[in-house]
Design a protein around this nucleic acid. Sequence first.
DNA 1: GTTGACATGTTAGCTAACATGACATATACT
DNA 2: AGTATATGTCATGTTAGCTAACATGTCAAC
Lengths: 127, 127
Amino acid sequence: MEKEWRRSMPLLSMNIVMQLTGLTARQIRYYEEHELVQPARTEGKQRMFSLDDIDILLEIKDMLATGVNIAGVKQIFEMKNSPAAKNDTKQVITDAQLRAIVKEEMQLAQRHQRASLRQGDLSRFFR
Amino acid sequence: MEKEWRRSMPLLSMNIVMQLTGLTARQIRYYEEHELVQPARTEGKQRMFSLDDIDILLEIKDMLATGVNIAGVKQIFEMKNSPAAKNDTKQVITDAQLRAIVKEEMQLAQRHQRASLRQGDLSRFFR
DNA sequence: GTTGACATGTTAGCTAACATGACATATACT
DNA sequence: AGTATATGTCATGTTAGCTAACATGTCAAC
């Protein structure tokens, strides 16, 4: 309970954070620009980082090194912080639709008419 | 219980899947290449997709449209399927380390020696 | 206060690679 | 027989992520 706010206490300057993370100032600002970190500011607008911020920065560094891009990192962070998000591949096709599709498809195949259903994007029918 | 295997039953051909998802064959193969989908195969090596596959493909399409890249999509999928992964920003810096850092930093600042700790990447000490 | 290191926001530009397209050839379906 | 798919290779546009550079602003110490 005491450690908690100690970790979120903004006491590290840009300079130190650069050393701790191995990131350039430009990179760090870039990540902030994309809302991945929100360091506190002094009255004079200078960034002050907490330990939590450092953790986040190191995580970003990790993921980027893995090949994930900023958009991906953001998505993953959101996923971590939202308790929901647990939905396994949401069901976008109902069984009824399936039956219709397959039936339609078979009819078409049988009639050698690859003209109607087969052309055009049907994805709009789903989700 | 019956619907389950119906959804995972591979019965859709490339052609249909293209219509259903609005993706090109090239795209779908590309995603498979990156192990995001694993469609079944006929004896003649032709892909046969299940409804679950379709769901996955639509999800991929969604995320890519959002700006997430393949690596990100993969990461997110893994995160969904692994029960753990729940770790909020794992602690990479201990309080002891913190004290050392800050102390060191203050001493250095005081002595006007911006030469020792301040240069070099310290990120290797963490994680 | 004045000084000198450090931060800031902004702009401009590089580069590497991601995601697709396109084509060719071979094999599989019906 | 004729379309649909497979696989592989080459090519391409776009843009994400970053560096470099600048002019201005901040902070601590003397």
